[in-house]
Amino acid sequence: MAWNWTLPGWPDFRYDASALESFEQKFLLSSGEILGAVHHVSQPAREQLRIELLSEEAMQTSAIEGEILDRLSVQSSLRRHLGLAPDSYPSKPREQGVAEMMVDVYSGFADLLRHETLFRWHRMLLSHDRQLETIGAYRQHAEAMQIVSGRFDRPTIHFEAPPSARVMPEMERYAAWFNKTRPEGTEPLPALTRAGLSHLYFESIHPFEDGNGRLGRALAEKSLAQNIGQPTLIALAFTIEKERKAYYALLEQHQKTLDVTAWLIWFAEIVLTAQQVTLDRVGFFINKARFYDRHRDQLNARQAKVIARMFREGPGGFKGGLSAENYLKITGTSRATATRDLQDLVEKGAFSRTGERRHTRYGLNIDQDVESIQ
């Protein structure tokens, strides 16, 4: 099998720049819209917004690799690493590691890429893993680095990376390329083109024993942030996770060729979708604050508990809406009390109600229109 790194011309990827121009323009426009929306968030609330956006990305970049993290532990770790007032929730090693890496990516986005940057991220991410031979350094094992699936005795090889002996020179060249293609570099590239290439290029070298996917997505985030001059906070991992099957299929396809136009178009579409998800989340966060401004002093303890639980579901809310049964499970109250509480919330304008009898569902009465905050 001819992998991309074995082809003549590697690593000079070929692509149609004109096919990406409209995506690049939309990216810059959406970046400005997100910045404008965040300015509507009060300064104290911005820290919580940053925690929520970073924690979601930490959760989803791990979910792509099949790891399910404890959200509250991730958020507790983020608060500590960002120097904010800590909460009482315990920080677990896996969650603490990915949170620390996310903060390092966020705070050091403008720094040049160096080997130590990647080694540091790798240590943060995988210091808890006692099964890896090498942590905080590139792989050194003699056996082939392969991405496989299927039966142990008849595996399907999706990709084979360069041998370990080639990793350091390949990463020397990668870091030099990453740095010279930044806006201040000698060969600057447009934002989406550079981020898409940086991710595919890194994944094709696959320099570490484990964690390459998470580090590669962190590099894409760093690249985008450098191109707009500030941390992006966009829902990149969240959006990729929703398209995980296509993501792996396209990576596999373009690790066999140097013609990567189709990969870059797909990646650009993913980033633009991620920007819209982030814009929706910022709008949701602002509307959540407005909701509490209107109703905070009108809620009893049961109602406040249920509403807080509903807000944790995010902009999508409970699938199908909140039912009376949901209310009973969350509060542990009687059916009669639940009925009175729900009716009270409708009368106060906090909830909207749809359906009848056992099909009755409730939703938070908030403005979901992001344009209303701009």
Rank of each mutant, 00 (worst) to 15 (best):
D293C: 08
A262L: 12
K305S: 14
F291M: 06
F285M: 04
L279G: 00
I286F: 08
F285P: 00
D280N: 14
W266C: 07
V282S: 03
T273I: 10
I270M: 14
L279D: 01
D297A: 11
N300L: 02
A301S: 11
R294L: 13
Y292I: 05
R290Q: 13
L258Q: 09
Q298I: 08
K288Q: 15
T261M: 07
R294I: 08
I307Y: 03
Q275P: 00
I265P: 00
T278C: 05
R309E: 15
V277C: 04
Q303M: 09
R281S: 10
R296K: 12
H295I: 01
L279Y: 11
D280H: 09
I265G: 01
I286K: 06
V260P: 03
L272S: 07
D297Y: 13
L258H: 07
L299K: 00
T278M: 03
A268R: 01
Q275H: 12
L279A: 11
V260R: 06
T261A: 08
K305V: 08
Q303L: 02
L299N: 05
L272G: 02
V271W: 04
D280E: 12
R294N: 11
D293P: 00
N300K: 07
D280S: 10
D297C: 03
R309S: 14
Y292S: 06
D259G: 10
Q303A: 07
A301F: 11
W263R: 02
D293M: 11
L279Q: 13
K305L: 15
L264D: 06
R294Q: 13
D297G: 05
I307T: 00
I265R: 14
R302V: 06
R302N: 14
R294G: 01
L264E: 08
A268S: 15
Q298K: 15
F284Y: 15
G283C: 03
I286N: 00
I265W: 02
R281W: 07
A304W: 07
W263Y: 09
W263C: 03
A289P: 01
N287S: 15
A268G: 14
W263V: 02
A301H: 11
R294V: 10
L279N: 03
A308R: 14
T273W: 04
A308F: 08
F284L: 04
A304I: 05
F284H: 10
D259S: 12
I270L: 12
D297S: 11
M310K: 03
V306K: 02
D259V: 08
A262C: 01
I270H: 02
R296D: 14
F291Q: 05
F284K: 06
L279P: 00
L279W: 02
A274I: 05
G283N: 07
F267R: 05
W266G: 06
K305I: 09
A274C: 08
V282R: 05
A308S: 14
Y292H: 10
I307D: 00
Y292K: 02
L279K: 14
N287F: 04
